[in-house]
Simulated assay, not measured.
Amino acid sequence: MAKKPRKQQSGATPAIVALEKAGTVFSVRAYEHDPAAPSYGEEAAEALGVDPSRVFKTLVADVDGVLTVAVVPVSGSLDLKALAVAVGGKRAAMADPAAAERTTGYVRGGISPLGQRKRLPTALDASAGAFATICVSAGRRGLEVELSPDDLAALTGAVLAPIARP
Rank of each mutant, 00 (worst) to 15 (best):
A2K: 06
R6K: 14
Q8D: 05
Q9M: 04
T13Y: 07
T13A: 14
T13E: 09
A15G: 07
V17P: 00
L19S: 02
T24V: 15
F26A: 10
V28T: 14
R29I: 12
A30T: 15
Y31M: 03
E32F: 09
D34Q: 11
A37Y: 12
S39M: 10
Y40S: 13
E42P: 01
E42L: 15
E43D: 09
A44Y: 01
A45K: 01
A47L: 06
A47P: 01
G49L: 11
P52D: 09
S53C: 06
K57H: 10
L59T: 03
A61L: 08
D64I: 07
G65Y: 11
G65F: 12
A70S: 14
V72M: 03
S75E: 07
S75D: 06
G76C: 04
L78M: 08
D79R: 02
L83A: 07
L83N: 01
A84P: 05
A86Y: 02
A86D: 04
V87M: 03
V87A: 03
G88E: 11
G88C: 03
G89F: 02
K90F: 12
R91M: 08
D96W: 03
D96C: 06
P97L: 05
A98K: 13
A98H: 02
A98L: 10
A100E: 04
E101Q: 14
T103K: 08
G105N: 07
V107K: 08
G110K: 02
G110Y: 06
I111W: 09
I111N: 09
S112L: 04
P113C: 12
L114A: 08
R117Q: 11
K118M: 06
R119L: 14
L120H: 05
P121F: 09
T122H: 11
D125N: 08
A126I: 12
A130I: 07
F131M: 13
A132E: 15
T133S: 15
S137C: 13
A138Y: 10
A138W: 11
G142T: 04
G142N: 06
L147G: 06
D151H: 08
L152G: 09
L152V: 06
A154G: 09
A158C: 09
P162S: 07
R165E: 07
P166M: 01
